[in-house]
Design a protein around this nucleic acid. Sequence first.
RNA 1: GGCUAGGUGGCAGAGUGGUUAUGCAGCGGCCUGCAAAGCCGUGUACCUCGGUUCGACUCCGGGCCUAGCCUCCA
Length: 460
Amino acid sequence: MSIRIYNTLSREKETFVPGDPERVTMYACGPTVYNYAHIGNARPAVIFDLLHRVLSNRFPKVVYARNITDVDDKINAAAAQEGVSIDVITRRYADAYHADMAALGVGRPTVEPRATDHIDAIIAMIERLISLDHAYEAEGHVLFNVENFPDYGQLSRRDRREMIAGARVEVAPYKKHPGDFVLWKPSSEDLPGWDSPWGRGRPGWHIECSAMSASHLGEIIDIHAGGQDLVFPHHENEIAQSRCAHGTDTFARYWLHNGFVTVEKRKMSKSLGNTLIVHELLKQWPGEALRYLLLSAHYRQPLDWSEKALEQAQSTLDRLYGLLRDHAPAAASDEVAPDPAVTEALEDDLNTPTALAALNGLARQLAQAESGEQALLARRLRATGALIGLLQQAPADWFAQRQVAVQLSEATIEDLIQQRQQARQARDFAEADRIRDQLADQGIVIKDGPERTTWEVAAR
RNA sequence: GGCUAGGUGGCAGAGUGGUUAUGCAGCGGCCUGCAAAGCCGUGUACCUCGGUUCGACUCCGGGCCUAGCCUCCA
């Protein structure tokens, strides 16, 4: 079995063949850090983290770069509004991004380049594009010359002429061609800027990814990934810049794009004001439940977010963690291979719904297993979870995290359970039920086991 | 207007030219003082109209509907 992925460039599922199996390279467009990430921003982070895991399971070395865009007009606006410098803004939200993504089980990429650390590389790349007649200077701006790149539009399947006809924005007068886009733009005194051959300024939006990708991964990379809305113009422009600067006929061999998270079937976006902030969601829900939900639909499909779906994800995880709690030795899982059905599903264009189905099938096997087989199956369940980025907590921790919302102390709860036990032994069931109801009102669910009574915080 | 993707059981969501997805909920059973949890069992699902085929939810064509991109956006 080989890994197969859907390539936006060909609009087909293809067998993944890296340029160099000893060093697989992937780049994903990361956040622009001017605000907290919403759940739609989290989707690609989770999906491409999973891709990183799946590739790493197969290849000895995978270099995964996910950038942080820390120079951008939206950042400037946020800084101006608060009256602080941009690095106050970028540091705050980069830190929050890391914390939030960690809560979703997203591992750190191999490298996390920042645009401001690559200004020299960006300037060098622009100079090269100018010298090759792929870019020109105009009124302090440097623009990419779309006319000189015949393949422009290949990724998004757009025709340049049609794009002009359908253009809804006014074309800047200094552009030679309406489709030309900015590589470098001038900064006024009050804006962040760097000295360049074209005066003090800052990079355009697309050039940073091209420069950082080349710096860390090479001129031709295996995989470039991002959200569907980046296909045009961002990725189209990256291809144009990179190929023209390097004189290559390929920038990335495979292009992956994730679908949107929707709310009531509408795209989640800042302009619609229907964003759900990960930072906020994490105050109410376990990050792992968010991850499970994000993986419950195939990455290229839209994912409709709802509280109900989140509850379902949590219920399912409750069952899985319950099984691990009841059967699992806490032992390490690294000696056990993940369930082949799960590996196979993931290697088939990251088919996470099928992978989760197989994970649940494995759980069922565990639930039904003879006692002699339970330990092995439990370890396999955990090892399989590790590949997906799920089920890595201690079960007790999973169940314990909901206690923050509970008013009663553990001692009080234990005490009430004791009282109930005594009532039960006295066959005073009215009293026993009263105590049970009292606890239930506080969100505590009682479970009478053969040995002893346990409790946990109810799923809401 | 141009280009995409999609319409599957109560809900979410895979997949397949003829055979059980899976999860959540529901229902029946076991267990329990009664429950809960857990386990077992359980569902005549594939937008519409034509076509291809021995056979289509699955392939092809038309239609209807939904969402997205073409502008900052994951």
